[in-house]
Structure formats: C-alpha cells, structure tokens
Amino acid sequence: MARVQIAFQDNDESRYIVSAIEEDNPDSTIHYEPALIRIENEGSLQINKATVEAHMGREWDVQSIHVNLVTLTGNIDEDDDYFKLAWGGQ
C-alpha cells in the first residue's frame, strides 16, 4: 500500500478540518511544518462533512476545502458529504 497525503494552510479553519481527519482516520500521521499542516495515511484518507461540521460548530461545504488546501496526492473521490483520497483501482 502506498501513502496518500494532503496538506492545508495552518490556520483556524484548517485546524477543525485536521481534527476531523484525525477522528475519522485514527492511523493517520500529522506533521506540523512551517505555515502548513501535512497529513499522511496508508492507502486512503477520508474527510467527512458531518465530522468537520461537528468540530467547527457550523455548516461546512465540502467544496470549500479549496480555500485552505495546499496540496494532495492520490485519486480523488468527492461528493456532497465526503472527500476521499485513495491509491489503487477504484
């Protein structure tokens, strides 16, 4: 299995997204680098709208991920209520 990776600008909004990722992907590794937060996980990584909203305490549109996104690797699967990165045939 190969690792997927996603990075966000280090700011208040991203911190909620990152804590939601931590909750839903307990095996992921989080690196705090100057001005950015980089998350790696084996195989795949999923961001759920509901979890992010629970952390933020307000509505969150999955497409607004673009505002703080820095980079990613892996094949993307996105819908109204989740955003998923994965390697391997889908």
Binding site: Q9, P34, T71
Partner: peptide, 27 residues
C-alpha cells in the same frame, strides 16, 4: 510546498501566502 515553508521560516509572509494560495489551485 517546501520552498514556501522555507519562505515562512524566513519571515516572508507575502510570499508564503501567495505560494500557498497558488498551490491551492495547484491541488
């Protein structure tokens, strides 16, 4: 990514910001 992190490390707020803003498009 690493160069812009480097810019942040070197106190260059303007560059790190355009860099990451551009990189969000790059994603």
């Amino acid at each position: 990514v690493p160069f812009m992190s480097g810019a942040a490390y070197n106190g260059d707020m303007a560059t790190v910001t355009f860099g990451f803003s551009a990189q969000s498009d790059e994603a």
